[in-house]
Amino acid sequence: MEIGVCVKRVPMVGGKIVLTPDEQEVDTRLSGFTISPHEECAVEEAVQITERLGGIVSVLTLGPAEAADQLRDALALGAKRAVLLETDGREWGPIATAEAIVAEVRRHAADGPGYDLLLCGNEAADTGDYQVGIRVACALGWPCVTGIKNLEITETGGQATARARREFQGGEETFEFGLPAVIGVKEGINLPRYPSLPGRLRAKRAVIEASEPQWRDDGLRKRSLRVPATQRKQATVLGTGADAVPALVGVLDEWGLLS
């Protein structure tokens, strides 16, 4: 079984998001880069599935050359193969991104057995488009479900099936379908491991397969970004330690929370 995991390089924003002066990007001069926690869990889930059932994990990303760092992070955690769909740094929309991923999936299938399962994050941390995985699945004619917080893959007689569960209105709903498929996972599906030292060394030496898909316009065009106006408050300090408790009780009472 080969599982492809789609990850996206995004700025690691700290205490505050700062924009570039042209209001087109997040200013990343002082920030590092990372991937969404959902995608970290997708990598971990894929590694766990192959530890159980055999096979390999491939990690793929569409992004600038520097996105190789995020691929190497995933290699250090147990992915074996890394694919970079290299861009010139321009932002790609979800339709164009999905097309480039589909082209990679088809190319890979032409060279061998291809992917049996693609895992995505539920949504990318930056654009939050909630759709790349579904567009990939529909183009390939594969089933897809998102928001998954529990996944069981079983193989019987050469056919693999997925049993995928997610939260629904305080309860849960379950989906079952055959592979190949695309599944969007959410943080909480597992607790990602930390990279091992041998893992890091292996990742450093690994060869990354790179190609350069052609950018194309998407139907959703960004004009500008802005930080929403929030009423910044400054908390009134009620006091220190347990001595502040009577004042705190007074505030809760005033808000009608103690009746």
């Binding site: 998001i17 930056d126 939050g128 139907g219």
Partner: peptide, 15 residues
């Protein structure tokens, strides 16, 4: 919303 509402994006949507 982008970044779960930490940023707002002004965009044009065609189609």
């Amino acid at each position: 919303h982008r970044w779960a509402g930490l940023l707002l994006e002004e965009a044009s949507l065609t189609g």
